[in-house]
Simulated scan of single mutants.
Amino acid sequence: MVLNRNFNGMRLKEGRIYRGFTITELAEYLNVSKQMVSKYENSHAEPSFETVHKIANYLDFPFHYFYEEPVNVTLGNTYFRSLLSTGKKEREMQLDRIKYITILRKMLEEYIDFPELDLLVGFDYQDDIEEFTQQLRTYWGLGDKPIKDIVFLLEERGFIISSLYLDNKSIDAFGAICSIREKEYYSIVLSSDKQSFYRRQFDVAHELGHALLHEPTIIFNDLDKEEQKQIEKEANDFAAAFLLPKESFLRDITMHPSDLDYYKMLKKKWGVSISAMLMRAYKLGAINDGTYQYMQRMISKKGWRKKEPYDDIKEVSEPIANRQAIELLIENDYFTGPELIKILSKEYGLTIHPSEIESLLGLEKGYLLSKEEPVTNNIVQLKTIRNMESC
């Protein structure tokens, strides 16, 4: 029972940071000193039963959450799409979201066959990102054709992709490698509150660039601002080269390289924003500096900085693998929503509200408390053998 366990001060700190609260804010709510909250978090003092209930209410975590010893998760570098404009507090808030998503994936793998993480290994790009992206396209069998849906592509290659409402204008996407029980995962979290399909394509490709170019060779905390700018540039160059392969994109763009209406047509073909294509055309030498600057001014004049043509027409691609896994299990009566929550708590030391799980896995609100129609065309499949009685 919970009362036979010790209060976990690290869990208090984890939950507080997860919700974005400072020690001062929590202390004021509890009507205690900042020093006392610090003692709680460092296990130098234990809050009363009543105080824990107040903490649970304020941070919106179940009471049990603060008495658990969670499964160990090793988190590598976390790369943010807008690294230099994302503050330390905002970055810290998101770290445990990646951990929790990865724990959920680990639990689901006990019942579901997911694609294994499939990365290009053994190739040293030696600063030649063009060659590296071509090697990756060949390895994944993509040829030189447009990538219609990079979210689906990476899920098929074993990446964990989630789309969350982050309520933070400075964060578009972030990703990190995690290790649980000697197995490695790469998770990418996308902001769901301000995306177009085309922007999301580039964001995901950018995070893929970090995964392949910089992990695990970069010690992120040792980088200064100039070095951070450099790895962001490399990730952007990777995204552009991967989404817009040099030879085939040049064949298209050289027909009308300075015609913005032509870029509108190419946007539908390549699934990439006009701004990204224009930058790529400039870097490949399809347009000179003067033409590039003129076209940039025209983009501003047309109001395309905030919204380009077709941005509000094409539906944003959402991750589906984790959602499909949950739906397969529940619709096939492997377990109910409440039973899933109990397994997560008992086997992985993570007791969170159903609504939190729904958010992390992209489920419809209330799904874990209800019964929905089964889905078809799944990326993932149920494992063929599983002794459910042990659960």
Rank of each mutant, 00 (worst) to 15 (best):
D124T: 04
Y29L: 05
A240D: 11
Y18I: 06
L117R: 05
E182Q: 14
L260D: 00
S38Y: 07
L284W: 09
P309G: 03
L213P: 10
G15R: 02
D96C: 09
Y79T: 00
G349A: 08
S163W: 04
N8C: 05
F7G: 01
I177H: 15
Y367E: 05
D144F: 02
M1R: 05
T291M: 12
M36D: 08
Q134R: 10
G290N: 15
S273M: 06
L208A: 06
I23P: 00
T102N: 06
I299T: 13
V2F: 01
A205G: 04
S390Q: 09
Y139C: 03
K302H: 11
L164G: 06
D203P: 00
L213E: 00
W304Q: 13
P245Y: 00
M388G: 03
R297V: 06
P115K: 13
F21T: 06
F220C: 00
I55E: 08
E207S: 13
T384P: 00
K306I: 03
M279V: 11
E130R: 06
V204L: 10
I147A: 12
K302Y: 15
K365Q: 03
A235N: 05
G20E: 01
Q35T: 14
R181Q: 15
N236C: 04
L250M: 11
I55C: 04
P309W: 12
T376R: 15
K283D: 08
K306Y: 07
A325G: 05
M93Q: 13
